[in-house]
């Protein structure tokens, strides 16, 4: 195999040397978009919707490959060590920022292993409770949770999941520790919430919208900076007095470090075009979210978001003292 390895090294060098000329023809073959979660999940859904539209603009097929495992760090690691030729990209969510703190020994350096393409969408979250939870509105909810901190149970979908992050933020905002009940994924957590086995949860609108509308769970607040069109009567957490309580599950597209800037810009342009598509907006709206704007779908905006979010979550995670390795 020694010969082959040497050949491989030569190829990488050749590609790097030729990258200037190479980018003009980009893309000349199909692109692999790595999604670091299982097929069919919410992140996968976002990726497939966007990939389809981006393919149309790029004139080449984008193939979504699911490389799940270890909170998304395996898939991210795969892309970090992939060839920086623009044919392997990563679509990851907020976990990209939180895993930098949640995992003390990552296989890659989050801030230095990637180039940036742009933000895709930010999914707001909702603070919900079982259908027969007593408090009538959000202020009453906060009072109730504070007063009954030792009996209220809070579900989450596992370490590092959106619901876990939001839950940590919620407890630090209220400054009370609650009994947390982890599940393996949102599905079983929602089942127990529906069945009244646990009391409260904070989860993405993707998962909660239909249940809230169906009256099978109670929605108390949204975690976005402004109220949502789908729930005009539901206050934001900030309105409810939780200062700076703003959590959204933002998604971004990355490429391996060293990917030529022209390639990233080309991808970024395709992303912006895809996000401006009315069909995408409609599909995203069904998921309770909206596509990022053209300004957000840029390398600079994603870089800034990643840096801010790493800094914002570090103290929250460290204070909670939870690590995933």
């Amino acid at each position: 195999m020694a010969v082959s390895v040497k050949v491989g090294g030569f190829t990488v060098a050749a590609i790097l040397a030729a990258s200037g000329a190479f980018a003009q023809a980009y893309p000349e073959r199909s692109i692999t978009m790595v999604v670091p979660f299982a097929a069919g999940g919410p992140t996968d859904t976002v990726a497939r919707l966007v990939a389809e539209k981006m393919s149309a603009d790029l004139g080449q097929q984008i193939i979504v490959e699911n490389v799940g495992g270890a909170g998304g760090t395996l898939g991210a690691g795969r892309v970090a060590s992939a060839e920086a030729d623009g044919y392997t990209v990563l679509l990851h969510h907020i976990g990209m920022a939180t895993s930098a703190t949640l995992y003390r020994s990552l296989a890659y350096d989050t801030l230095n292993a990637f180039e940036y393409v742009g933000l895709v969408t930010s999914v707001p979250m909702t603070i919900v409770a079982r259908a027969d939870f007593e408090p009538a509105d959000f202020p009453a909810f906060i009072d109730y949770v504070k007063a009954n901190a030792d009996t209220v149970t809070m579900a989450n979908a596992g370490i590092g999941a959106a619901s876990h992050l939001c839950g940590m933020m919620f407890m630090s905002a209220l400054d009370v520790p609650l009994v947390t009940v982890p599940y393996k994924g949102t599905g079983p957590a929602m089942t127990d919430l529906l069945g009244g086995q646990v009391d409260i949860m904070c989860d993405q609108t993707t998962n909660t919208t239909k249940q809230i509308q169906g009256g099978t769970i109670k929605g108390y607040a949204v975690t976005s900076p402004a109220r949502l069109d789908i729930f005009p009567d539901m206050p934001t957490a900030i309105e409810g007095g939780l200062d700076g309580f703003e959590v959204s599950i933002w998604h971004g597209i990355y490429s391996p470090k060293g990917t030529p800037a022209e390639v990233n810009d080309r991808l970024s342009a395709a992303l912006q075009k895809a996000l401006a598509d009315a069909d995408i907006a409609a599909r995203f709206a069904e998921l309770g979210t909206a596509p990022s704007t053209a300004e957000e779908a840029t390398p600079a905006a994603l870089k800034a978001t990643l840096e801010t979010e790493i800094g914002r979550w570090k103290p929250v995670i460290e204070a909670a003292g939870v690590y995933a390795d």
Binding site: M1, S4, V7, T11
Partner: peptide, 14 residues
């Protein structure tokens, strides 16, 4: 089935 396998890998690209 369109599995995302690379048919011929980097060790073989000349």
């Amino acid at each position: 089935l369109g599995l995302p396998f690379r048919r011929f890998g980097p060790w073989l690209s000349f």
